[in-house]
Simulated assay, not measured.
Amino acid sequence: MQLDTREFRAEAKFQRVSPQKARLVLDLIKGRGVEEALNTVAFTKKAVAPLVEKVLRSALQNANYLSQEQGLDVDVDNLYVKNAIANEGPRMKRIRPAPMGRAYRYQRRLAHIVISVAERKQDGLVQTVDAEASAAAKPAKKKAPVKKAAAKKTATKKPAAKKSPAKKAAKK
């Protein structure tokens, strides 16, 4: 029997932050548990972090509310950030005065921030096995000795050794 996991989401549209800057914070929390994600966002020193935290808390409240309304059994402690994206919204075209009567055009970017949380799948068939029992069940294979091919070395000339004083005296 395959149970379909529910996904709960929250959106913040038309936010005055560029999507690129919002993605920096959203990438930090993707795939993390909700508790850990909230802690991460709380200590992130980006201007968009409080906004991301607000959207994440909203998604968490949506999960809590919908689980009560629909009679679902959702463990809030078991939720994780399944998806966190920042889509581009409409751009505001602006003009900045420039020298000699000219004008520079620039664009103020807006972002739509979407965060969805879901419950982690739990397998009820988790088995714990002792290390000794698993070692006894699987006999250890002996590794065959690996033969290394001997590399041919080129003969190097040895410098002529100095004769010791005892040999010099024996020659005379």
Score class of each variant (00 low, 15 high):
residue 24 L to Y: 08
residue 32 R to N: 09
residue 50 P to A: 04
residue 81 V to K: 02
residue 33 G to C: 04
residue 167 K to C: 06
residue 92 M to V: 14
residue 170 A to P: 00
residue 116 S to R: 12
residue 172 K to S: 15
residue 135 A to I: 15
residue 111 A to S: 15
residue 67 S to F: 02
residue 85 I to H: 03
residue 93 K to R: 11
residue 70 Q to P: 01
residue 139 P to I: 10
residue 107 Q to E: 15
residue 8 F to Y: 14
residue 43 F to N: 08
residue 87 N to V: 02
residue 42 A to M: 11
residue 156 T to Y: 00
residue 30 K to P: 00
residue 130 D to A: 01
residue 103 A to K: 06
residue 132 E to C: 01
residue 169 A to R: 00
residue 160 A to R: 12
residue 152 K to M: 00
residue 116 S to V: 04
residue 104 Y to L: 10
residue 118 A to D: 09
residue 96 R to T: 12
residue 33 G to A: 05
residue 150 A to M: 05
residue 96 R to G: 10
residue 33 G to F: 12
residue 90 P to N: 12
residue 57 R to Q: 06
residue 84 A to Q: 03
residue 104 Y to A: 06
residue 73 D to G: 06
residue 76 V to N: 05
residue 71 G to I: 08
residue 57 R to L: 13
residue 157 K to Y: 00
residue 167 K to R: 07
residue 67 S to T: 15
residue 49 A to L: 02
residue 94 R to M: 14
residue 121 K to R: 06
residue 116 S to W: 12
residue 56 L to C: 04
residue 55 V to A: 07
residue 57 R to T: 07
residue 122 Q to K: 02
residue 22 A to D: 00
residue 172 K to I: 04
residue 61 Q to V: 10
residue 7 E to D: 12
residue 133 A to P: 07
residue 42 A to D: 04
residue 162 K to R: 14
residue 104 Y to R: 10
residue 123 D to Y: 13
residue 23 R to E: 13
residue 100 M to G: 05
residue 122 Q to V: 13
residue 83 N to Q: 13
residue 143 K to V: 11
residue 21 K to V: 07
residue 121 K to I: 14
residue 83 N to S: 13
residue 86 A to K: 10
residue 82 K to T: 01
residue 51 L to C: 00
residue 32 R to S: 03
residue 147 K to V: 07
residue 63 A to S: 04
residue 125 L to W: 12
residue 95 I to Q: 08
residue 47 A to M: 00
residue 40 T to E: 15
residue 170 A to T: 03
residue 164 S to Y: 05
residue 93 K to Y: 07
residue 73 D to Y: 07
residue 55 V to W: 04
residue 12 A to S: 04
residue 57 R to I: 13
residue 154 T to Q: 12
residue 107 Q to G: 03
residue 99 P to S: 14
